[in-house]
């Protein structure tokens, strides 16, 4: 297959662009100075400070619970909805509603949910952030999966139905495997967006159970310190390790191709 050479330019530009600030923050996390601008020498002291920071630890756990919970919910609901909209509905209205959360500014959704929880007199907790993140996560999953469904070959599904398979058998045996790359991409998006989401979380989280972005936001009130760079570096290292491990162990590769 031909791959035009010229395309490699933007390809590598993308990665250089995405990773330049990452390199900066990793380097700065080993800074012995506390200035974010000048590198004074190598030091691990910020990692030591980080290790003793209980707020960060709790925030991290809360964030993981929220991200995993909302990704699972959003992926399940979003995939079903995408298939439902493509195969069981002709309603333009429903199509529109399903993309709405992606169209809404986070602040509007956040305040809307704050008012909603207040109106039904719900006590906020981690669950309220999970539910909130599921709203936008689901829109992204639905949209990405529908991209995959669009123009896709429906003859197999029709054949399956004609042979008397229930919609569910057809779904699990035929549709789902075809959609796998879209579902994985959508879930990856939902997880990525949840793990670093600040605005909606700050309105829907219980004040005493903040997620990590909320904790970090309060730490950078006086500017970024190398401790926060150390935290960002650790997060990267851990997610990188997890991804590599997952790839080795579960043949993630196959589901993506």
């Amino acid at each position: 297959m031909r791959r035009p050479r010229l395309m490699y330019v933007p390809f590598w530009m993308t990665y250089v662009f995405l990773y330049t600030p990452i390199v900066v923050l990793v380097v700065m996390s080993f800074n012995s100075d506390d200035s974010p601008y000048t590198f004074g020498g190598f030091s691990l002291k910020w990692y030591g400070e980080l290790a003793s920071d209980a707020n960060v630890r709790e925030g991290l756990i809360n964030t993981l619970i929220v991200a995993v919970g909302s990704t699972v919910l959003a992926t399940a609901l979003g995939t079903l909805l995408a298939v439902g909209l493509a195969r069981h509905s002709r309603s333009r209205l429903l199509d529109a509603i399903s993309v709405m959360p992606a169209v809404l500014p986070d602040l509007v959704l956040g305040i809307g949910l704050l008012v909603f929880y207040a109106t039904i007199k719900a006590t906020l907790g981690l669950y309220s952030v999970v539910l909130a993140h599921t709203v936008f996560g689901m829109a992204f999953v639905t949209a990405v999966v529908r991209t995959r469904l669009a123009n896709s070959d429906t003859s197999l599904e029709e054949a399956s139905r004609d042979l008397g398979a229930t919609p569910f058998t057809t779904f699990f045996r035929i549709t789902l495997p075809q959609l796998a790359p879209g579902i994985v991409a959508g879930a990856l998006l939902a997880f990525t967006l949840s793990i670093d989401e600040f605005v909606i979380a700050s309105f829907t989280a219980a004040p005493l159970e903040p997620t990590l972005p909320i904790v970090i936001y309060s730490m950078v009130r006086f500017g970024v310190t190398p401790e926060i760079n150390a935290l960002a570096t650790l997060l990267l290292a851990v997610s990188f390790t997890v991804v590599i491990a997952a790839q080795r162990m579960t043949r993630l590769t196959e589901s993506l191709s």
Partner: peptide, 8 residues
Amino acid sequence: PFWTNFLV
């Protein structure tokens, strides 16, 4: 890169 903090 997006699994670390946006502000950072």
